[in-house]
Design a protein around this nucleic acid. Structure first.
Lengths: 333, 333
DNA sequence: AAGTGAAACCGAAACGTTTCGGTTATGTTT
DNA sequence: AAACATAACCGAAACGTTTCGGTTTCACTT
């Protein structure tokens, strides 16, 4: 059906090796170059990447595992990563593991079996043993957002503790003392960090981080709403609240509307991620935003570099990025 | 390095063909089965999908092209499709073409070159000639959401005209006459359909669909905001507005907040897609929602079926699905 | 115990590349 | 014009599967 290098060789009268050399940027005599290019044009030949992959043991494909494609934080990063990798000739196979450890492992298996050249993963579980399959095979692994113990690899993180501390300090500076927090699952790295930031800020201000001021959700909209409800009912004196991811921010707002609580009159509010939603709300929400574009850039760059290094890898890197703060009207002085 | 079938053959004393047969579900004598399984276990052999792909001319990979991974409508569908395909052993290569026709064509090239087995695409352009590369090669193409002229393939659509007509009729039933619409780009299939639905509803009610009651955005948040501004300034007497996609709904709401317009007191509002956002707003927005899960189901099912049919394809199918309506508090009687 | 049909097995050739080691062509130097 | 260094070329083997057509083995019959 489709033309092969053999056809090109036959047509031009040249050898197979010469065609291969040409295709891989080798030197070829001018007149032969022309002949080859004509033949390629005429037969509209395209290299068979599968055959090439068999021979070179490279698929030019990167696996990406994320907890939820539906979380804007993930989507924003993925969009960018996919773009950057594709512009360098790499395809991206995305696996959404629905924040499920079991499914994450399956995805790792799936991708390994597919022989992707590298793995980019925002881990759902807290341990990384299953990822060693890749490192052992000399295939680079890049972690996003969450660090893992049992594996040595590159890693692009956000300084979550700082982000959270900063947000809470802003509330403190505005005079708030009874500050609540809607935290994430206690077993997730980023959630723990954000919680720690809250505690640090409170303690630095001479306040204790009381248990009842902290409600734990699981990063979903629903959990954000119910955490909000819990906080309000347990803390009639609470004057401000900090919510630590986008989905829960939305959930908290839904609940606040439900309860007819007025922001910032009755309650000051700082949310997380996604400027657009924050802007659409009345009043505009003050939020912490993560540098997704920058994350994507570092992740892709690290991956591509490791891929080039081809096994003889240099020292592993961990990059930590700062969040920024977008001022809204949801914090009362 | 990694074990191959040859190793298994050597180890078990069986022939290569027998191993292959076993791996592909063929029959093997009990004692041999055991020997093979032991060998596989011991050498932890895994079929090399690349080699298999070379021989079978199948990559077990589906290409997916979408306009924006960042649009929830897309993400919701993709998440589901990816899941369904992977559960049947197919990998998914996603290409985000940023709503750009040029980039869409590049993505088609890229995926074709990668020799994916099939293509799922939510087209950005309005013509589908470039997709014939796939059909000519006997590779199935499934269109999502937008129908194209120059290509014959399966297609999963939403009844946008009906959706829009239904929404507008609800506004009419609530007594509104000066109903505005924020429509999408006039060259996009779905946008045209939604616009037509609006016109039909208005005309059926004995009203004309005046030009100045319709503002066109380009499906982005920003354009939604500016379209809203335009509508308000041009139509002081407008009492209701219908916005025809999620991102523009958000934009419109941002602008409405900016302008301090009260919903539904001063303006009744019906938006599109994404229940969560609608619920988070005060008051809850009434919205049209699209059956993304159902779309994903049909798309995957069609693709898998065509893949099995393997060329001797039956009649092409076009499936059209209904939207549903979620009642909020944003429409005044 | 020989004969039988079906099931299980087998070797070798393909799939379309890359790569190794060796050969030929080119053009420069003497 | 012969000798040479270098660049360009080449054939064949390899990558790890599947598959074709043919052979062996098995479990029954007779």
């Amino acid at each position: 059906m489709a033309a092969t290098m053999k056809d090109i060789a036959k047509r031009t009268g040249l050898g197979l090796a010469t065609i291969s050399s040409y295709l891989n940027g080798g030197n070829v005599r001018e007149k032969n170059r022309i002949k080859i290019e004509e033949a390629i044009e005429e037969l509209n030949f395209e290299v068979n990447e599968v055959a090439r992959g068999l021979k070179t043991n490279k698929t030019k494909t990167i696996g990406v595992i994320i907890p939820e494609l539906n979380m804007t934080f993930c989507t924003q990063i993925i969009t960018e990563v996919e773009d950057l990798l594709r512009s360098r000739g790499y395809a991206t196979i995305i696996c959404d593991c629905r924040s499920d450890e079991k499914r994450e492992e399956e995805a790792v298996e799936f991708l390994f079996h597919r022989r992707v050249d590298g793995l980019i993963i925002m881990p759902s579980g807290k341990q990384g043993k299953h990822l060693n399959k890749f490192t052992r095979a000399g295939k680079p692994v890049v972690l996003i957002d969450r660090k893992l113990k049992e594996i040595e690899c590159d890693c692009v993180l956000v300084d979550n503790e700082w982000a959270s501390k900063d947000a809470v300090e802003r509330l403190l500076a505005a005079g708030h003392k009874r500050i609540g927090m809607i935290a994430g699952p206690q077993d997730i790295y980023t959630a723990k960090e954000r919680y720690r930031g809250y505690c640090t800020a409170m303690e630095n201000a001479g306040l204790s981080a009381e248990d009842r001021l902290v409600a734990h959700g699981d990063y979903t909209i629903e959990s954000g709403a119910s955490a909000m409800k819990e906080l309000v009912s347990q803390n009639p004196d609470m004057t401000a609240v900090f919510v630590s991811n986008y989905e829960m921010t939305m959930g908290a707002i839904i609940e606040i509307n439900e309860l007819r609580i007025e922001i910032p009159g009755q309650l000051s509010f700082i949310g997380f991620d996604n400027v657009e939603f924050a802007k659409a709300n009345i009043p505009r929400l003050s939020i912490v935003i993560q540098p997704t574009q920058e994350i994507a850039g570092h992740v892709s760059e690290l991956m591509l570099r490791r891929l080039e290094e081809n096994g003889n890898q240099g020292e592993r890197e961990t990059i930590k990025l700062r969040t920024s703060f977008v001022e809204g009207k949801s914090v009362k002085e």
